[in-house]
Measured scan of single mutants.
Amino acid sequence: MATGGRRGAAAAPLLVAVAALLLGAAGHLYPGEVCPGMDIRNNLTRLHELENCSVIEGHLQILLMFKTRPEDFRDLSFPKLIMITDYLLLFRVYGLESLKDLFPNLTVIRGSRLFFNYALVIFEMVHLKELGLYNLMNITRGSVRIEKNNELCYLATIDWSRILDSVEDNYIVLNKDDNEECGDICPGTAKGKTNCPATVINGQFVERCWTHSHCQKVCPTICKSHGCTAEGLCCHSECLGNCSQPDDPTKCVACRNFYLDGRCVETCPPPYYHFQDWRCVNFSFCQDLHHKCKNSRRQGCHQYVIHNNKCIPECPSGYTMNSSNLLCTPCLGPCPKVCHLLEGEKTIDSVTSAQELRGCTVINGSLIINIRGGNNLAAELEANLGLIEEISGYLKIRRSYALVSLSFFRKLRLIRGETLEIGNYSFYALDNQNLRQLWDWSKHNLTITQGKLFFHYNPKLCLSEIHKMEEVSGTKGRQERNDIALKTNGDQASCENELLKFSYIRTSFDKI
């Protein structure tokens, strides 16, 4: 039985969820670079991206490699990797027998973001014989899940209580170790020597080791999670996991709180800001991140802002960003909400898709409305799209047979046209069989910064309504002859009103 693990408890099935942008060198404390989270699957090609990484700022997932063999891993080693800020997950990587050479110096898994409450997941690794993470000293947050690894031993010899604050939620089941077939031998045991430290858990006094050649490092209890030197002297209180010299914040392997210019500090002093819960960055760093993602459509890219001495992905609820200094300031009234469309555009074809934009005031991208039916549609669209004030790209209304009016965009005031449909149009209306009105132009103002209007096959939309939009939106004169079809717009509506004058002759039985 794995020490510190839980057996036999019912657990939810383990679901495996399925960018080499360097964020800056980590400095003297770390020998390499800070790398983003990685999802490495199918083959070993991307694994080489770990070569210079000291910190993975995010998670590391290595999974679904069915053609790899043990010899493929023999020359692979990433000794610079010290810390993973989120979680480490391995799933069905064939041929991998140990992690001792792959990650010989991995010391800390912070667990800032977890995989279903777990910071370390080893699942269905069919050839893994031992973990071998002999320098792993601290899992700051989260638990361990090690399950269905039929060859995995050296679990009962690990004292997880020396690595985690609590072992109650560890789930370590259905491994070879369960069948008591392992016969784990710690260093020196074969020669009758006791080389590794022994600890007591559940009444068992057991030597602690990761492999037959690597003991588990056990520091004096007084050192807590700070770690200790090879001689057993406690590291500085700002260290986490390990250090090369005692009581020196510049000799830590990793930091308990924050890293700044080669030393570990309790908090980031001005003019620095907390970033990702582990390091200090200056304003320029946060500003660069903001600008890199301002026009990016890459998933996970955030326009970072500053709030409460932190550089964070977005302002919290009730705050909006001051564009001059990136500071989050309290909103006066309802907060603006910028919604970034991942692929640059979004099609609204149902109430469900409209709900995804609920509360958005600025759309960074283009909207395509293609709704053919739905219950209580006008009210639903207004509830979900009615706060949109600005669209950076274009607005396209296409084959939306259920629409009679666009009044559900009740606050839309600006279409920038930074991206144009077919390279020309910022407003595009095609084949809307029941569209009769755009907006009530006596109450609604709309500016279209650039781009043209396109109207074709809107049989109940009168040309007068379209011409009014040209005047109000500032697009009059931009359109070419064929942009607004004269014969297919309003051709099934009563669009022309003329005053009919009647004269009559009164007659009676005795007068003409």
Rank of each mutant, 00 (worst) to 15 (best):
P31G: 15
G37N: 13
G37Y: 06
I40R: 00
I40L: 04
N42F: 11
N42E: 12
N43I: 07
L47M: 06
H48I: 06
C53Y: 04
V55Y: 08
V55P: 00
G58S: 01
H59M: 09
L60I: 05
Q61N: 03
Q61E: 13
F66A: 08
P70E: 02
D72G: 06
D72K: 13
F73R: 04
S77W: 07
S77F: 15
K80E: 05
K80L: 07
L81H: 00
I82M: 13
I82G: 03
M83W: 02
T85D: 01
D86V: 00
L88Q: 00
L90A: 05
L90Y: 01
F91N: 15
Y94T: 05
Y94G: 10
G95Q: 13
E97P: 06
D101T: 14
I109K: 00
I109Y: 00
I109A: 00
L114G: 02
F116W: 14
N117Y: 07
A119S: 12
A119M: 00
L120V: 09
I122C: 07
E124N: 12
H127T: 11
N135E: 04
M137H: 13
N138V: 15
N138G: 11
I139P: 01
T140V: 10
T140G: 06
S143D: 09
S143Y: 02
R145N: 12
I146S: 02
E147G: 09
N149T: 07
N149K: 01
E151G: 10
Y154I: 12
I158P: 05
D159R: 07
D159F: 00
L164V: 15
S166V: 11
S166T: 15
D169N: 13
N170C: 07
I172L: 15
L174V: 14
L174I: 14
L174F: 06
N179H: 12
E180F: 05
D184S: 12
C186F: 08
P187L: 12
G188W: 14
T189H: 14
C196R: 13
A198C: 13
Q204Y: 03
F205N: 15
V206S: 15
V206L: 12
T211V: 09
S213R: 05
S213L: 10
S213K: 13
H214D: 03
C215V: 09
P220F: 02
P220M: 03
G227Q: 14
T229P: 06
A230H: 11
G232H: 06
L233K: 08
C234G: 02
C234Y: 14
C234L: 01
C235R: 00
S237L: 08
G241C: 05
N242R: 12
C243V: 00
P246R: 06
D248C: 02
T250S: 10
V253A: 13
V253H: 05
A254L: 15
C255R: 00
Y259P: 01
C268Q: 00
P269R: 00
P271G: 15
F275Y: 06
D277A: 11
W278Y: 10
V281W: 01
S284D: 02
S284F: 01
F285K: 01
Q287L: 04
D288Q: 15
H290L: 07
C293I: 08
S296D: 15
R297A: 13
Q299N: 09
H302C: 05
Q303G: 10
Y304N: 10
V305T: 08
I306D: 04
H307E: 08
N309Y: 06
G318F: 08
Y319V: 04
T320L: 06
N322W: 07
S324Y: 03
L326T: 05
L327E: 13
T329I: 14
C335L: 06
C335Y: 05
P336N: 13
P336K: 09
P336R: 07
P336C: 03
